[in-house]
Each structure stands twice: as C-alpha cells, then as structure tokens.
Design a protein around this nucleic acid. Structure first.
Lengths: 203, 203
DNA sequence: GTCTATAAAGGGATAGAC
DNA sequence: GTCTATCCCTTTATAGAC
C-alpha cells in the first residue's frame, strides 16, 4: 500500500508468519496476499513465483540459527556443554517458528530432489566438525560408545519429532496447547539425560 | 479389465504400493488409475473420492500392526522385553511400508482435524496400558525415572524420525540406499540401549 | 509499483452411453 | 462394471492499463 519500498519486506514477513508460525503450509499466494493486505500480482512482481518466495523466506529464517549452531560446535567448550547449548538454541528457535520442522519434512517428502535447494551442503560440514569431537569424548570415557551417526540421529529425532507429530502426541497425552508447550520445554532436560544418562549441567 | 470382481482389490493394492512403498504421497487419481491399468472413473465408482480411497487403504494397512502392538503390551512379558518386541514390529513394518510414517505426518500437517479419521482413539487406550507398566518398572528400580510421556515420545521419535527425515540424514551421513537400510536396522539395538542404557536381550 | 482481467493447467467428480 | 466426455473448481502466472 502506501508504505513505499516496504512492500517486499511486508510480503516476506507475512509469508514467514503464515508458514512457520501458523503452520499453514499449503497457503496459496492469494492467502498470503490477503493477509499482507496487498494485491496478489505483487507477489509475482517481487518474487516471480510462490516457489521462489518460499525459498527466500526459508533461507532467511534458517540462516541465523545455522550460524549459531556452527559457532557452538566450533567453540572450545566441553562437548556436553555444546550439546546443552544446541538444545537451548533448538528449543528457542522452535518457539519462534513452531512449524519450521514440519515445513522441512513436508517439502522434502513432496519433492526429495529439492533437498539441495533448501538445505545445501552445510550439514555435511557440520558432521565433519562434530563426529571427531564425539569420538574423542567416547575415547575419554565420558560417555557410552555409540556410532556418531546414531548419536546425531537420536539427538535430531528427539528434538524434531515432537514438533512434527504434535497433533498425535498432544492427543495421545491428552494435553491442551499450554500443556504441550510445557511438555516441549521439559524435553531439553529429558533429551540431555537420555543421551548421556546423567542430569544436564546447571547454568 | 477382464479380472471380474477383482478390480476393487487391484485399485487398493495399487494405491497402497504407490503411497506407502513408493512414497508418492501426492499421487493423483489419474496416476493411480494408470498404474493399476484401469479407468480413472472406476476409482470414483468404487471409492467415491480420492479421500475415501486413502482412508480405506490406510486403515487396512494399519490394522494388523495395531493388533500386534496391542497384543505385545497386553501380554505378561517383562516390560523391557515388550519394548524389544515393539521395536521388532516397528522396524519390520517399515520395511514393508517405508513411507507410512511420512504419510501420517504429511496428512495430519495438512489437515490436523483429520487426525480423528486416521488415528482414532486407539492410541489413548494404549497409553493407559503402557503408563502403569512403565511406572511399575521404575518403581522396581529396573530403569531410570522418567515421565511416561517423555519415554513414549523418545521411543516414537527415535523410531519414526529417521524414516520421515530420510533424505536429510541420508545425505548428511553420505549413505547410499543400501547403507541407509543397514543404518535403520542397526537402530533397533541403538534405541533399546539409549532408552535403557544397557544392551538389548539376546533372542 | 500497483491494480484488473485473463490465460492456462491441473485435478476431482459426475452423467450417460455401452 | 467400464468407458468417454464434460463440468467445475482451484490456483499459478502474466499482460496490460493506470
């Protein structure tokens, strides 16, 4: 509208909210335009296609988190402390964008080829950083032996699944929305304890 | 075609393969008809809508597994043995229907209201069966204390996430399809060990 | 930059002939 | 029971006026 140069930003912000906060993963360009209070054609004017809008919005939302996580694992904190901080970042991010994980899973399932576009090779690099640290920790006798792949799979599973399967677990445990929030917050401690079989460090 | 009364079954079988084995979760009625070698209109003749075809196929595929799992937890085996058997059933099922979990997650995300239709209250009952057994096991000192909800969440997470996030993990760990199969099979032992902090029982 | 109008494609569902 | 033809709705994308 009258906001001059801000229309592009407005569309991005609106899309981000719709997809990652409200979880309306099938939202149409019309829906986005309506909620932003702009004309549908403007979305194509600025972003060419729905596809590319998603791409941009996703990249931007993911960039900061990725930065933080890389910093954690490249620091010289003790390994377990790193995991503890990773859990903080993860839990934190998912209160701002509760449907990010759903978005990722849904997208890669509907078109596995697109994994490239959304999650480019950064993850591999992260593995190269973490695996040696993990093996070192095992060698020092600080944790039970486990293949790095399985440790990472366990970590990511226990973080992400309760988000993508929220409707299932929420009903199974008969929790209302607030109850489920509490449940998710408790998970930081639980995951740490499950991975290392000991209570997490006090802050 | 000439197969007389078998057309309905043929359509169901084809749909089941497309969705749960091949993972083509967005398959259209046309696609299903083509692959079954029948006319598209027949799908509507037998099942009224794409929606209802899915419903039927899913229910049938899920029924047997649900039966088995209920039987396990209603038996009088030791609790840990039950979990061990649950893991067997789960892993086994997911080699027959590798995309079942993806289907569930994708469906409930695109329409959370439909959880009712697909996964009716049976799960709640299962919780009522398992929770007391779990608390008993903790009381007996056979495992570390944990809220039942988190134990179940951990179990389901570590089973399901590696399936729904296959493209992510596969690339992250640089595994080919066979490598990933092996990885999934290893998980039975890993999950048991992670949950109980001890090696699973020999068969 | 922003709007209206319209093209173009995809896919679910039904009517009616055979 | 099976097929063809058709309807109808949704949604993306663009052309062109303002």
């Amino acid at each position: 509208m009258g906001d001059l140069v801000e229309t592009e930003q407005l569309i991005k912000k609106t899309a981000r909210d719709i997809f990652f906060q409200k979880g309306r993963l099938k939202a149409t360009t019309q829906e986005i335009a309506d909620e932003a209070g702009v004309n549908r054609a403007l979305i194509h004017y600025y972003f060419r296609s729905r596809e590319q809008l998603l791409q941009v919005v996703f990249e931007e939302a993911v960039a900061e988190t990725r930065q933080k996580i890389a910093a954690i694992f490249e620091s010289d904190l003790p390994f377990k402390k790193k995991i503890s901080q990773y859990l903080d970042v993860f839990i934190d991010r998912n209160f701002r964008y509760p449907y990010m994980q759903n978005f990722i899973i849904t997208e890669i399932n509907q078109n596995p080829d697109k994994e490239d576009d959304y999650l480019n090779k950064k993850r591999e690099n992260l593995c190269r950083t973490i695996f040696p640290q993990l093996n070192e920790e095992i060698k020092k006798g600080n944790m039970a032996p486990v293949k790095p792949e399985h440790f990472i799979a366990n970590l990511m599973s226990m973080c992400s699944y309760p988000l993508v399967a929220k409707p299932i677990l929420q009903r199974m445990f008969a929790l209302d929305d607030d109850g489920y929030k509490t449940f998710l917050q408790e998970r930081k401690q639980v995951i740490y304890k499950t991975l290392f079989n000991e209570a997490p460090p006090k802050e």
